Computed example of a mutant assay.
Amino acid sequence: MIRIDGSKGEGGGQVLRTSLALSLVTGTPFQMVNIRAGRSKPGLLRQHLTAVKAAEAVGEAEVTGAELHSKELTFRPRRVKPGDYHFAVGTAGSATLVLQTVLPALLSASGPSTLVLEGGTHNPAAPPFDFLAKSYLPLVRRMGPEVEATLERPGFFPAGGGKFSVSVLPAPLKPLHLPERGKVVRRQATAMIAQVPYDVAKRELETVGRKLGWYPDERRVEELKRSVGPGNVVSLEVESEHVTEVFTSFGERGVRAEDVAESAAEEARVYLEAGVPVGEHLCDQLMLLLALARGGSFRTLPLDGHAQTQIETFAHFLDVKVSVNELSPQVREVEVRG
């Protein structure tokens, strides 16, 4: 059995989710200690426990230590079982992170699956639904499997209450190469508001216009009617010939609308000026897909701690080599070989 120290690298929930995903795919059992030791509230929180329970169900696994605040976990998968699943975080914790835990296994399962997930759909420090649907899943489909996601109700911190469904038609993952993004064909800035004054969205979009020079017809307000609680998200979509990237920033009580928009706009500016196809957050998830496909490459920004933790976690479960080459101060080329 593999033993993994959860305090290494980024020290958060990512090493747990990636370990669960790879354990399911490879059938390799593992024991993890010091779970989320690098966080102010260490151990399993509700969203991490839901991810463990989801992996347990999908992999018909034998699990010990699956309880709130647990810092140790043993996970022994039996087999990946496709089917119809419903997973609810029970708080505003990220439901998209729960999906990313079990999706890799279901992509290569013996039959189709459907999932209904409830919890947070637009959370700070987690991939929002818009990123999942517009950036990540289109690349999954290019690699073979057919995966579609539908947002039924948005869920913001702290109320939660979001809900989305996912259909999965598995197929072998094919290597993918993304050396360039091609010409930018569409730009869209969206200020989403739920139970928040319209003026907040207006100020955010004006800030995006000043910061990035995006035209009025590239900026829009989306008022969300079905949200359980209030929420505000600035989402910047950059659609290019070969890839779509999504950059988001979340409104918070006491934070100026202009500052919220500045954060997303700055991230988009850095990405656009670097000329790379893959941004910082997509990098982590794409590396996992390429590792499972045993091949592929892409260009991206300098890797952060999350990406380095991914590479270190792969080594426990997969016989793949990930190389990172510096092409310029702001450009890295990542290559995965099986």
Rank of each mutant, 00 (worst) to 15 (best):
R141V: 14
F157N: 08
A125V: 09
F157Y: 14
F157W: 09
V166G: 03
P170S: 09
E118P: 06
V102D: 07
A149R: 04
V116H: 06
A149Q: 07
G119R: 05
V140P: 02
R141Y: 13
L176G: 10
V147S: 06
F164Q: 06
F164R: 05
N123E: 12
V168Y: 05
V140H: 11
V98H: 05
L99M: 08
F129W: 13
L137Y: 11
R153L: 09
S165P: 00
E148A: 13
E148T: 15
L107Q: 09
T121D: 09
P138T: 02
V98R: 02
T101A: 03
R153D: 02
L115M: 13
T121N: 07
S165L: 08
L117Y: 09
K134G: 00
F129G: 00
A109C: 04
L107E: 11
A159W: 12
N123S: 08
V116I: 12
V98M: 01
L173K: 10
S135M: 03
Y136P: 02
P127Q: 04
L176S: 07
D130N: 03
F164V: 02
A149S: 10
G111K: 07
R142P: 02
T121S: 08
H122W: 07
A133V: 12
P170Y: 07
S108N: 14
P112S: 14
M143R: 10
A171G: 08
S110N: 09
A126N: 00
G155C: 05
S110L: 13
R142W: 12
T101H: 09
T121P: 06
L107C: 05
Q100T: 01
M143G: 06
P138Y: 01
K174V: 14
V168A: 02
Y136V: 01
L117H: 04
R141M: 11
L176C: 10
P112R: 05
P112M: 00
G162F: 11
F129I: 04
P145M: 11
Q100I: 00
L151D: 10
G120K: 04
L173H: 13
Y136F: 15
V147A: 11
L176V: 14
S135G: 01
L173W: 07
L103N: 08
E118L: 03
G160F: 04
D130V: 13
S165R: 15
R153E: 12
R141Q: 15
P112V: 00
P128F: 01
V168I: 14
T150A: 12
L106P: 02
S108M: 15
R141K: 14
L99T: 04
